[in-house]
């Protein structure tokens, strides 16, 4: 578990992170979202110990990262947004020297290097100088380096930047599998649609402050006024619209042009209420083609939280 409380980071006269508190549980993938300059990278760098916070407490797996930074760092893997590599080394050599840095025993070092190269699909490039790799491949090589010591806690700063679609899918799978293994992952990214696919919680930052933090469902419940339902009937769409307006919990209905489709805003966000509504529509003898509650993605959530409004 990563626990951050009252974290403050100052640069010159600018406060990058202001009294931020954040908790990431085991097996949790937390998406750190915010516009440029929100303080995401500063937060991550402070957690891993690359930046000295003005004050605040950081505990990583129960270890006080500020009192025992070396011990805390041994449990963490950090991948920065711009991944540097030793350009004059081959890919396997690059991983090999970091395997030495992470004190992986010599007997299993080669095996671990090959495993991580395979995990990021770079086995074919093992003998290629790292300097000749594309940006996406460098990113993957750095990810392999980050995973080399088998860290319990992962902090990935914009890990998907520069990756091609295939690599992004692989990255998602890697992150999911790490979460399944019980590791805590903090990921920052601008590609919110993708983050919603693997994040179990979100933390939205703006101007150094934490605007909201919780599971996606919690944040949705906090900011959504009900759930949006897309209903398509075979006929009598207008009649259904009027019927729904008298139904308890329906806030608004809108017919999509002349089609037999309706968009309904329903106050009940729990599955039971939605199931009851569906059953009642059937009972009212409307012939339904489709009924789809639409979950809002992180992008909409981010806009709804209105970080810009807040600032």
């Amino acid at each position: 578990m990563i626990e951050v409380s009252d974290l403050r980071v100052d640069y010159d006269d600018f406060c990058a992170v202001r009294d931020l508190s954040l908790t990431i549980g085991d097996g949790e993938v937390c998406g750190l979202i915010g516009p440029n300059g929100a303080g995401k990278t500063s937060t991550m760098r402070a957690i891993v110990g690359l930046l000295e916070p003005t004050y605040g407490s950081i505990r990583v797996g129960g270890i006080d990262a500020r009192e025992r930074p070396d011990d805390a760092q041994r449990t963490m893997g950090f991948m920065p947004d711009f991944a540097p590599v030793y350009e004059d080394l081959k890919c396997w050599e690059f991983l090999d020297i970091f395997a030495a840095a992470y004190k992986i025993p010599k007997a299993i070092r080669k095996q671990r290097v090959e495993e991580e190269l395979a995990r990021v699909s770079l086995t074919e490039k093992r003998d290629v100088p790292a300097g000749t790799l594309s940006r996406g491949m460098r990113q993957r090589l750095t990810l392999a380096k980050t995973l080399l010591p088998d860290p319990q806690f992962l902090l990935l700063d914009e890990p998907a930047s520069g990756l091609d679609p295939n690599a992004r899918i692989e990255l998602k799978q890697i992150i999911r599998s790490l979460a399944v293994e019980g590791r805590s992952v903090l990921v920052s990214s601008h590609i919110l649609s993708e983050m919603s696919e693997f994040c179990t919680s979100v933390a939205i930052m703006e101007r150094g402050r934490m605007v909201v933090h919780g599971t996606i469902a919690e944040v949705q419940a906090k900011f959504n006024q009900g759930v949006e339902l897309h209903i398509k009937v075979l006929e009598r769409a207008e009649e259904l619209g009027k019927w729904l307006l008298h139904y308890e919990g329906v806030l608004a209905t809108e017919r999509n042009g002349s089609a037999n489709e309706l968009t309904v805003r329903f106050a009940g966000t729990d599955e039971q209420s939605i199931a009851n509504l569906l059953a009642d529509i059937f009972r009212a003898d409307f012939r339904m083609v489709s009924f789809a509650p639409r979950q809002e993605g992180l992008e909409e959530l981010f806009l709804k939280v209105g970080a810009k409004e807040v600032s």
Partner: peptide
């Protein structure tokens, strides 16, 4: 996994490379 178990894990990870 309980918090205590996690703490033990992190400590042990920290200690393995110490």
């Amino acid at each position: 996994m309980s918090v205590n178990e996690t703490e033990i894990t992190a400590e042990s990870v920290a200690n393995t490379t110490k």
